[in-house]
Design a protein around this nucleic acid. Structure first.
Length: 294
DNA sequence: GCGATTTGACCGCT
DNA sequence: AGCGGTCAAATCGC
């Protein structure tokens, strides 16, 4: 079961690459378009490469699925609760899992996050909030997220996604019914996703004032359906995953005051589909963000 | 009563 | 030794 999706992904990526190549031929007149196409093709190449790596990793990882907490090393992390300490935190630094950092105007992607910590960071004015997937235990989803307000621009959040979602959120599950996103899903169809509201609409700047407002305002949860756009502002950095796929989220909605109340909710906006169906292709966002920004 | 958030403590890495 | 990430008890809200 796990392999099928990869094959599907690979197939779709290959097709997308082909179409992009064809499109490139048609757009030769425009230098700018050509440049964009180069970017798209390059992105496809990376995505394919990443998908292959992910498939290989998944194959080998399936053997040891018992390891939930950290796929990384750390020979003996947590010590058994020895007599003295009531509590112990086992900490495993994020290593080979996929990491994607993005700048977003609001928090929220179609996923459900649960905040598990907040910490003040040395050179930052604002504290950093830590989230893990709500389904970490019931579905062994290891996705995590770290959010921090930018010092320069308080309205912007720097969000780091670590690991890929392996859960199937009921809330998100509804999305697939939307036209264009049917089950098999084709990740590369930007149109559908965009139409849903994620990216395209946002492009402009912040069409999602609503979300932003709510976010900055009081950390309320958004109604749930909307939002989306503003988030994909830009991909600050994306490290190639060694193994799993990346997570592409989209909308967000809450913010937290300097001290603490980060709320993260879910509800699925259109963007969610993207992340859910493909939880794992940051490159696609690369494409989208690029397209939007230029 | 249950689930989410807060917050201080723990612990590994640099 | 300090910093950053995670844990888990306590607290809060629905």
């Amino acid at each position: 079961m796990s392999m099928a999706p990869y094959e599907q992904v690979m197939d779709d990526l290959a097709k997308g690459q082909q179409f992009a190549t064809q499109l490139q031929g048609l757009l030769r007149d425009s230098p700018k378009a050509g440049h964009i196409m180069d970017q798209i093709l390059h992105t496809f190449s990376r995505a394919i490469h990443a998908a292959k790596a992910a498939a290989a990793a998944a194959a080998s990882a399936s053997a040891s699925e018992s390891e939930v907490t950290d796929g990384a090393s750390s020979g003996g992390k947590r010590k058994p609760a020895a007599g003295g300490g009531p509590r112990k935190a086992c900490r495993t630094r994020t290593q080979d899992s996929s990491v994607v950092t993005k700048s977003m105007r609001s928090l929220e992607d179609g996923q459900t996050w649960r905040k598990y910590g907040q910490k003040e960071i040395q050179n930052s004015k604002h504290s950093k909030a830590y989230f893990r997937c709500t389904h970490k235990y019931d579905q062994q989803c290891m996705a995590r997220r770290q959010a921090q307000r930018c010092d320069d621009d308080p309205d912007t959040f720097r969000v780091t996604y670590i690991g890929a979602h392996t859960c199937r959120d009921p809330a998100a599950a509804v999305a697939p019914h939307a036209p264009g996103t049917a089950a098999g899903c084709h990740l590369i169809s930007f149109a559908p996703a965009a139409a849903h509201g994620t990216t395209t609409s946002t492009t402009t700047t912040n069409s999602n004032l609503v979300g932003e407002d709510a976010a900055t305002g009081s950390g309320l949860l958004l109604p749930g359906l909307k939002l989306e756009g503003g988030d994909l502002e830009e991909v600050l950095s994306s490290r190639t995953p060694g193994s799993s796929a990346l997570y592409g989220g989209a909308a967000a909605a809450a913010a937290w005051p300097d001290q603490g109340d980060v709320t993260s909710t879910l509800q699925y906006g259109g963007a969610g589909a993207f992340g859910v169906l493909f939880d794992g292709y940051p490159y696609l966002e690369d494409i989208l963000s690029y397209d939007l920004d230029h």
